[in-house]
Amino acid sequence: MIRSRLTRVLFDTRLARACSLILITIVLLAWLGPVFSSWEYDQIDWDALESPPSLQHWFGTDFIGRDLFVRSMLGARVSLGIALIATLVSVLVGIPWGAVAGYLGGRTDQLMMRIVDVLYALPFILIVILLVVIFGRNPYLLFMALGAIFWLDIARIVRGQTLRLREQPFIGAARILGVATPAIIWRHVVPNVLGPALVYATLTIPGVILAESFISFLGLGIQEPNTSWGVLIADGTQTMESSPWTLIFPGTLLAMTIWCTNMLGDRLRDQLDATGAGYTRTSSTRTHMRT
Protein backbone atom coordinates (compact mmCIF):
# COMPACT_ATOMS: atom_id res chain seq x y z
CA MET A 1 0.00 0.00 0.00
CA ILE A 2 2.82 2.32 0.87
CA ARG A 3 4.36 1.52 -2.44
CA SER A 4 1.21 2.45 -4.32
CA ARG A 5 1.01 5.73 -2.42
CA LEU A 6 4.59 6.52 -3.29
CA THR A 7 3.92 5.74 -6.93
CA ARG A 8 0.97 8.10 -6.83
CA VAL A 9 3.00 10.95 -5.38
CA LEU A 10 5.76 10.47 -7.91
CA PHE A 11 3.68 9.88 -11.02
CA ASP A 12 0.07 11.02 -10.80
CA THR A 13 0.13 14.55 -12.22
CA ARG A 14 1.76 15.51 -15.47
CA LEU A 15 4.25 17.73 -13.67
CA ALA A 16 5.21 15.04 -11.17
CA ARG A 17 5.62 12.55 -13.97
CA ALA A 18 7.82 14.92 -15.93
CA CYS A 19 9.97 15.55 -12.86
CA SER A 20 10.33 11.89 -12.02
CA LEU A 21 11.31 11.11 -15.59
CA ILE A 22 13.82 13.93 -15.70
CA LEU A 23 15.42 12.78 -12.46
CA ILE A 24 15.51 9.15 -13.56
CA THR A 25 17.15 10.22 -16.81
CA ILE A 26 19.74 12.32 -15.04
CA VAL A 27 20.56 9.52 -12.62
CA LEU A 28 20.84 6.99 -15.46
CA LEU A 29 23.03 9.36 -17.47
CA ALA A 30 25.23 10.01 -14.45
CA TRP A 31 25.60 6.28 -14.06
CA LEU A 32 25.90 5.19 -17.69
CA GLY A 33 26.41 8.45 -19.60
CA PRO A 34 30.17 8.22 -20.10
CA VAL A 35 29.63 4.82 -21.76
CA PHE A 36 27.72 6.43 -24.65
CA SER A 37 30.43 8.91 -25.43
CA SER A 38 33.72 8.12 -27.10
CA TRP A 39 35.54 10.76 -25.08
CA GLU A 40 37.25 10.55 -21.71
CA TYR A 41 36.54 13.20 -19.10
CA ASP A 42 40.14 14.47 -19.15
CA GLN A 43 40.84 13.81 -22.81
CA ILE A 44 41.73 16.86 -24.88
CA ASP A 45 40.48 17.19 -28.45
CA TRP A 46 43.06 19.46 -30.04
CA ASP A 47 40.92 19.90 -33.15
CA ALA A 48 37.97 21.25 -31.18
CA LEU A 49 39.09 23.76 -28.59
CA GLU A 50 36.10 25.63 -27.20
CA SER A 51 33.84 24.38 -29.98
CA PRO A 52 30.05 24.75 -29.82
CA PRO A 53 27.74 21.70 -29.51
CA SER A 54 28.13 19.39 -32.50
CA LEU A 55 27.68 15.74 -33.40
CA GLN A 56 31.12 14.87 -32.02
CA HIS A 57 30.69 16.87 -28.85
CA TRP A 58 27.02 16.96 -27.87
CA PHE A 59 27.47 19.72 -25.30
CA GLY A 60 30.46 21.30 -27.05
CA THR A 61 33.92 21.46 -25.50
CA ASP A 62 35.53 23.64 -22.86
CA PHE A 63 38.39 26.07 -23.37
CA ILE A 64 41.03 23.34 -23.35
CA GLY A 65 39.05 21.04 -25.61
CA ARG A 66 37.55 18.57 -23.17
CA ASP A 67 34.16 17.09 -24.05
CA LEU A 68 31.50 18.86 -22.01
CA PHE A 69 28.94 16.06 -22.21
CA VAL A 70 31.21 13.53 -20.55
CA ARG A 71 32.31 16.09 -18.00
CA SER A 72 28.70 17.04 -17.22
CA MET A 73 27.87 13.39 -16.67
CA LEU A 74 30.88 12.89 -14.43
CA GLY A 75 29.83 16.08 -12.66
CA ALA A 76 26.36 14.63 -12.20
CA ARG A 77 27.86 11.48 -10.74
CA VAL A 78 30.00 13.44 -8.28
CA SER A 79 27.28 15.93 -7.32
CA LEU A 80 24.58 13.29 -6.86
CA GLY A 81 26.98 10.94 -5.10
CA ILE A 82 27.91 13.64 -2.62
CA ALA A 83 24.26 14.49 -2.12
CA LEU A 84 23.47 10.87 -1.28
CA ILE A 85 26.41 10.47 1.09
CA ALA A 86 25.73 13.72 2.92
CA THR A 87 22.02 12.93 3.17
CA LEU A 88 22.81 9.51 4.57
CA VAL A 89 25.10 11.05 7.16
CA SER A 90 22.44 13.58 8.07
CA VAL A 91 19.90 10.81 8.62
CA LEU A 92 22.35 8.74 10.65
CA VAL A 93 23.10 11.68 12.96
CA GLY A 94 19.69 13.34 12.99
CA ILE A 95 17.51 10.35 13.84
CA PRO A 96 19.39 9.22 16.97
CA TRP A 97 19.83 12.81 18.14
CA GLY A 98 16.17 13.69 17.78
CA ALA A 99 14.95 10.37 19.15
CA VAL A 100 17.16 10.53 22.24
CA ALA A 101 16.29 14.17 22.94
CA GLY A 102 12.58 13.60 22.46
CA TYR A 103 12.43 10.36 24.40
CA LEU A 104 14.51 11.41 27.41
CA GLY A 105 12.96 14.89 27.60
CA GLY A 106 13.77 17.29 30.43
CA ARG A 107 17.22 18.81 30.76
CA THR A 108 18.84 16.51 28.25
CA ASP A 109 16.27 17.49 25.68
CA GLN A 110 16.73 21.19 26.45
CA LEU A 111 20.49 20.97 26.11
CA MET A 112 20.45 18.89 22.93
CA MET A 113 17.93 21.11 21.20
CA ARG A 114 19.72 24.27 22.33
CA ILE A 115 22.82 22.97 20.54
CA VAL A 116 20.70 22.46 17.44
CA ASP A 117 19.39 26.03 17.74
CA VAL A 118 22.86 27.54 18.01
CA LEU A 119 24.12 25.55 15.03
CA TYR A 120 21.01 26.58 13.14
CA ALA A 121 21.77 30.24 13.74
CA LEU A 122 25.28 29.99 12.31
CA PRO A 123 25.46 31.00 8.69
CA PHE A 124 26.27 28.18 6.37
CA ILE A 125 29.35 29.76 4.83
CA LEU A 126 31.03 30.08 8.22
CA ILE A 127 30.59 26.40 8.91
CA VAL A 128 31.84 25.52 5.47
CA ILE A 129 34.91 27.71 5.84
CA LEU A 130 35.71 26.11 9.17
CA LEU A 131 35.32 22.64 7.70
CA VAL A 132 37.57 23.62 4.81
CA VAL A 133 40.16 24.85 7.28
CA ILE A 134 39.96 21.63 9.28
CA PHE A 135 39.79 19.07 6.50
CA GLY A 136 41.83 20.97 3.97
CA ARG A 137 40.95 20.13 0.44
CA ASN A 138 39.96 16.56 0.98
CA PRO A 139 36.56 16.74 -0.71
CA TYR A 140 35.20 13.47 0.67
CA LEU A 141 35.82 14.34 4.28
CA LEU A 142 34.50 17.81 3.57
CA PHE A 143 31.23 16.50 2.22
CA MET A 144 30.83 13.90 4.95
CA ALA A 145 31.14 16.84 7.30
CA LEU A 146 28.59 18.69 5.22
CA GLY A 147 26.11 15.92 5.96
CA ALA A 148 26.85 16.57 9.58
CA ILE A 149 25.36 20.04 9.14
CA PHE A 150 22.20 18.94 7.42
CA TRP A 151 21.10 16.75 10.28
CA LEU A 152 19.59 19.71 12.13
CA ASP A 153 16.23 19.66 10.34
CA ILE A 154 15.94 15.91 10.65
CA ALA A 155 16.77 16.03 14.35
CA ARG A 156 13.99 18.56 14.93
CA ILE A 157 11.41 16.58 13.03
CA VAL A 158 12.34 13.29 14.68
CA ARG A 159 12.19 14.93 18.11
CA GLY A 160 8.71 16.27 17.39
CA GLN A 161 7.53 12.83 16.32
CA THR A 162 9.16 11.16 19.30
CA LEU A 163 7.42 13.50 21.73
CA ARG A 164 4.10 12.20 20.41
CA LEU A 165 5.21 8.58 20.30
CA ARG A 166 6.41 8.65 23.88
CA GLU A 167 2.85 8.92 25.13
CA GLN A 168 1.66 5.91 23.14
CA PRO A 169 0.56 2.83 25.09
CA PHE A 170 2.98 0.43 23.44
CA ILE A 171 5.95 2.49 24.59
CA GLY A 172 4.53 2.56 28.11
CA ALA A 173 4.07 -1.22 27.95
CA ALA A 174 7.67 -1.70 26.89
CA ARG A 175 8.80 0.47 29.78
CA ILE A 176 6.76 -1.51 32.31
CA LEU A 177 8.13 -4.77 30.91
CA GLY A 178 11.54 -3.44 31.87
CA VAL A 179 12.96 -2.95 28.39
CA ALA A 180 16.11 -0.85 28.66
CA THR A 181 15.85 2.73 27.41
CA PRO A 182 18.34 2.32 24.52
CA ALA A 183 16.40 -0.72 23.36
CA ILE A 184 13.10 1.16 23.49
CA ILE A 185 14.57 3.99 21.44
CA TRP A 186 16.17 1.65 18.96
CA ARG A 187 13.36 -0.87 18.57
CA HIS A 188 10.20 1.12 19.16
CA VAL A 189 10.92 4.78 18.53
CA VAL A 190 13.31 4.75 15.58
CA PRO A 191 11.27 2.44 13.31
CA ASN A 192 8.24 4.66 13.85
CA VAL A 193 9.95 7.93 12.99
CA LEU A 194 11.79 6.52 10.00
CA GLY A 195 9.05 7.37 7.50
CA PRO A 196 8.82 11.11 8.21
CA ALA A 197 12.59 11.36 8.60
CA LEU A 198 13.15 9.85 5.17
CA VAL A 199 10.58 12.14 3.58
CA TYR A 200 12.42 15.15 4.98
CA ALA A 201 15.68 13.62 3.85
CA THR A 202 14.48 13.92 0.26
CA LEU A 203 14.36 17.68 0.84
CA THR A 204 17.95 17.50 2.07
CA ILE A 205 19.17 16.22 -1.29
CA PRO A 206 18.65 19.44 -3.28
CA GLY A 207 20.10 21.38 -0.36
CA VAL A 208 23.30 19.36 -0.46
CA ILE A 209 23.54 19.59 -4.24
CA LEU A 210 23.30 23.37 -3.98
CA ALA A 211 25.80 23.49 -1.14
CA GLU A 212 28.29 21.36 -3.03
CA SER A 213 28.01 23.51 -6.13
CA PHE A 214 28.46 26.62 -4.03
CA ILE A 215 31.59 25.29 -2.32
CA SER A 216 33.10 23.99 -5.53
CA PHE A 217 32.25 27.26 -7.25
CA LEU A 218 34.40 29.08 -4.72
CA GLY A 219 37.22 26.66 -5.49
CA LEU A 220 37.07 25.01 -2.08
CA GLY A 221 35.52 21.68 -3.04
CA ILE A 222 36.16 19.21 -5.83
CA GLN A 223 39.50 19.78 -7.58
CA GLU A 224 40.53 19.41 -11.24
CA PRO A 225 40.66 17.24 -13.29
CA ASN A 226 37.84 15.65 -11.32
CA THR A 227 34.70 17.69 -11.65
CA SER A 228 31.24 18.42 -10.34
CA TRP A 229 28.39 20.67 -11.44
CA GLY A 230 29.73 23.45 -9.25
CA VAL A 231 33.20 23.24 -10.81
CA LEU A 232 31.74 23.15 -14.32
CA ILE A 233 29.59 26.18 -13.61
CA ALA A 234 32.56 28.03 -12.16
CA ASP A 235 34.59 27.20 -15.30
CA GLY A 236 31.64 28.15 -17.47
CA THR A 237 31.43 31.52 -15.74
CA GLN A 238 35.04 32.19 -16.69
CA THR A 239 34.48 31.47 -20.36
CA MET A 240 30.81 32.37 -20.83
CA GLU A 241 31.50 35.41 -22.99
CA SER A 242 33.20 33.40 -25.73
CA SER A 243 31.44 30.07 -25.17
CA PRO A 244 28.10 30.42 -23.37
CA TRP A 245 27.35 26.69 -23.68
CA THR A 246 29.99 25.93 -21.05
CA LEU A 247 27.75 27.68 -18.54
CA ILE A 248 24.34 26.82 -19.95
CA PHE A 249 24.53 23.01 -20.04
CA PRO A 250 25.78 22.30 -16.53
CA GLY A 251 23.67 25.18 -15.20
CA THR A 252 20.49 23.77 -16.73
CA LEU A 253 21.22 20.29 -15.42
CA LEU A 254 21.77 21.61 -11.92
CA ALA A 255 18.68 23.83 -11.96
CA MET A 256 16.45 21.05 -13.32
CA THR A 257 17.65 18.61 -10.70
CA ILE A 258 17.07 21.07 -7.87
CA TRP A 259 13.67 22.02 -9.20
CA CYS A 260 12.50 18.44 -9.63
CA THR A 261 13.77 17.17 -6.29
CA ASN A 262 12.19 20.17 -4.56
CA MET A 263 8.91 19.54 -6.33
CA LEU A 264 8.76 15.85 -5.47
CA GLY A 265 10.03 16.43 -1.94
CA ASP A 266 7.27 18.97 -1.30
CA ARG A 267 4.68 16.56 -2.67
CA LEU A 268 5.94 13.75 -0.45
CA ARG A 269 5.81 16.07 2.53
CA ASP A 270 2.28 17.23 1.71
CA GLN A 271 1.25 13.61 1.46
CA LEU A 272 2.79 12.93 4.84
CA ASP A 273 1.04 15.92 6.40
CA ALA A 274 -2.25 14.82 4.87
CA THR A 275 -1.93 11.48 6.66
CA GLY A 276 -1.74 13.38 9.93
CA ALA A 277 1.94 13.06 10.71
CA GLY A 278 2.08 16.83 10.97
CA TYR A 279 5.07 19.02 11.66
CA THR A 280 5.55 21.06 8.57
CA ARG A 281 8.63 23.10 8.95
CA THR A 282 11.20 22.31 6.39
CA SER A 283 10.31 22.76 2.79
CA SER A 284 12.01 23.57 -0.44
CA THR A 285 11.45 27.21 0.47
CA ARG A 286 14.40 26.93 2.79
CA THR A 287 16.78 25.09 0.51
CA HIS A 288 18.55 28.23 -0.65
CA MET A 289 19.34 29.30 2.89
CA ARG A 290 21.98 26.66 2.88
CA THR A 291 24.14 28.38 0.36
Partner: peptide
Protein backbone atom coordinates in the same frame (compact mmCIF):
# COMPACT_ATOMS: atom_id res chain seq x y z
CA UNK B 1 8.89 31.36 -7.71
CA UNK B 2 9.65 27.65 -8.00
CA UNK B 3 12.15 28.47 -10.71
CA UNK B 4 13.55 31.32 -8.63
CA UNK B 5 14.24 28.91 -5.79
CA UNK B 6 15.77 26.26 -8.02
CA UNK B 7 18.18 28.67 -9.71
CA UNK B 8 21.16 29.18 -7.41
CA UNK B 9 23.09 32.45 -7.40
CA UNK B 10 26.06 30.75 -8.99
CA UNK B 11 23.92 30.40 -12.13
CA UNK B 12 21.77 33.51 -11.89
CA UNK B 13 24.63 35.93 -11.34
CA UNK B 14 26.72 34.86 -14.37
CA UNK B 15 23.56 34.66 -16.52
CA UNK B 16 22.59 38.22 -15.61
CA UNK B 17 26.10 39.39 -16.47
CA UNK B 18 25.93 37.51 -19.76
Amino acid sequence: TNIGIALPTIIVAPLLVL
